[in-house]
Design a protein around this nucleic acid. Sequence first.
DNA 1: AATGAATGAGACTTCATTCAT
DNA 2: CATGAATGAAGTCTCATTCAT
Lengths: 224, 224, 224, 224
Amino acid sequence: MTEVTPKAAKTNQKAGRTASKEVRRLQLIEATIESISKFGISGTTMTTVTGFAGLSLGIVNFHFKNKENLFEETLRHLAKEHRAQWRKFANSERLSPAEKLRAIGDANFHPSICNRKKLAVWFGFYGEAGYRASYRKIMTEYDTERWDALNALCQMVIVQGEYAGLESDKIADTLEGLYDGFCLNILMYPGEFSREIAKERLHEYLATTFHSHFQLPNPKSCQG
Amino acid sequence: MTEVTPKAAKTNQKAGRTASKEVRRLQLIEATIESISKFGISGTTMTTVTGFAGLSLGIVNFHFKNKENLFEETLRHLAKEHRAQWRKFANSERLSPAEKLRAIGDANFHPSICNRKKLAVWFGFYGEAGYRASYRKIMTEYDTERWDALNALCQMVIVQGEYAGLESDKIADTLEGLYDGFCLNILMYPGEFSREIAKERLHEYLATTFHSHFQLPNPKSCQG
Amino acid sequence: MTEVTPKAAKTNQKAGRTASKEVRRLQLIEATIESISKFGISGTTMTTVTGFAGLSLGIVNFHFKNKENLFEETLRHLAKEHRAQWRKFANSERLSPAEKLRAIGDANFHPSICNRKKLAVWFGFYGEAGYRASYRKIMTEYDTERWDALNALCQMVIVQGEYAGLESDKIADTLEGLYDGFCLNILMYPGEFSREIAKERLHEYLATTFHSHFQLPNPKSCQG
Amino acid sequence: MTEVTPKAAKTNQKAGRTASKEVRRLQLIEATIESISKFGISGTTMTTVTGFAGLSLGIVNFHFKNKENLFEETLRHLAKEHRAQWRKFANSERLSPAEKLRAIGDANFHPSICNRKKLAVWFGFYGEAGYRASYRKIMTEYDTERWDALNALCQMVIVQGEYAGLESDKIADTLEGLYDGFCLNILMYPGEFSREIAKERLHEYLATTFHSHFQLPNPKSCQG
DNA sequence: AATGAATGAGACTTCATTCAT
DNA sequence: CATGAATGAAGTCTCATTCAT
């Protein structure tokens, strides 16, 4: 329809020759996520990444120090994105502490961050993190922040209610465990476990723990 | 009986020249675990494996079809070992269903299977499992069995007690999530999370859920 | 006159945007010498050269046909500079032939051309010259000229004096050999061999050969 | 004539599959010399080396830590070979000190070590030595030994004769300079300078310096 | 004139696998 | 059964050169 001049065609062909550095970096990070989700960390090569990005092989080493650095930046990108998701609710002024706890849980399983593609990448990195300090450092940084937020919110709920024996840090531990464990199940058993189920189970856990703050639906009717 | 020539003597530092096939396989599988825990999946090569095993490079291809197959067998070995651990309690005739639930949880965090070395290997495989069906198949096989056992036990406890609204499968889901999530935390935050803490949190979850079957220690005094 | 935009101002840190072609070429050649002396021929890239020159990567291909051509021009620059140095004395009208021989020798070891930086570059090119005809051609051109000058001067000295058996071309050969050999020693053993020593040895050689033209200092007192 | 069985043919094709490690190393070092002499240091790649050796690409990294190490070992090989050549005469019991001086000079220009192929390699390494300490170290080690030998021999000759003003270390310096300088001329001007000329010039230098120990042929008749 | 992002060939290196011994 | 030298495909990274701006 619109006439594409040869020049424009050539320019657009590969996302433009002079895309800003920041744009290119993001493009390559997204291609890396794509590749890891499809081929795993060990199956992801400079060729697969640039292939997904539609760019030439040599470009990665122009925008990132090396492959290792590309992977670290990819992990950091995911971690930031994840944090942004739950922070939206943690910082909300319209929600009570209990509502925030629920919202953060739901945020962790939001399709934009909790989908097979990204989970595969996350667990790819977890798999390497066991012996790669740089990954562990990035993860710790963001995880600690989430735990602190959960702990603070649990503390507020406990103080509000009449939960004499409860200790906020223990509940934060359990919540973290459930988040990670459910994610693994979503990744591994996509046919049998889902984001929806994960959110339900989390709600149930919160309702069991903070019984006067959370209301469960009629047990007879939920989940087929 | 068989005369050991000097050459053979020198060669058989670890397992004897006439080690049965099964012994060699196990030797190589254990070396693989050792290597993955130290160098990760992507850093594990035939050379590192045979190095840990004290054997020559070429031998792996004699006992396993290829590297891929060695890894699969290693995963299967871990899965079997894991299953043996919790089955000991699931099949015990001396324990009540509730006690079994508790014992299975503890078994999952037994030092013999839940240590940094083996966890690193497990999560290495989880990382690859996202896109490698053969790994997922092995894991599913064993995980399903554990879920079934948990589900059956929860059902028995529910029937025994007066837990009107509880549904065994949901609790089994949550227990599975906690097992995996806590393992990840033990691997990632060894200084802050531990097997002991994991077992405590699990006990707390069971006590909250099945309040008339589990007794928590005095809350004011627990956890250092 | 020409308005300098901020961008241009920032760009022209070193030589002004309107630097003549000749100035740019020289700037790049000097940067090439700098780079080769620091990183060697094999470690010198377009990036290191333009880095030393404070210019952008793409500029070399504007002023030189390609990298090979830049190197040739660099070698030619060095050769010209070298020739200018000894020609100053060879053409002097105030010096006798014997004095010229001595002066040319000293000129070869003048700090402006015989320093570690430039020697490293010279021998870098010698190293490549073994199989690169274009370098050999440039070197030959200038070396021949020096040999001819030496030969002519030796001839004059022989004729002047009573050096019956001496043949000028043989002495020219030996002088050339000493020049090059001493340069190599200065480069390789900077702590033990120096320009001063080289000049002394040359003087000694001349004094031994042309005994009635050159006077050695008292042998007992010379050289620390 | 002799029937070559398929097996033997295949075995010999690539110098035998199980040549001892030492044989392979030497084979690769010689191929490296071949390659550097033909393509220079910067033009020598793993591919050219293994090509000359008739072996597969990957083999170098099996016998040498890396390319750098292969080059160092090649240089060391040349240095050892060179030392063996002159040592034969330096240690001879049949030669007088003066004869040894002459023989060592001749040895330096023996065709087995002083040919265009090896000279190209030597000067290739000299070119890199300016900024590569590992090369300089190897060269220094062997050069020092030769200088010491020359110095000692000159000292003996001086003591024997009536060379009042001469100092052995200065003559050793000059001899070293001539060796290196003449080699460079042989490499650079093969048509005009030769091993024979180099030996003559050296002899002349010795005769001029130690006039009562060395006899020159009738000057009118030598060299066309 | 000058810039520097982009390309892609080719370098070094690793490593699963093979196979003569 | 076992060894380990050898192969060669494939990976990472470098870098001369190009070209839109």
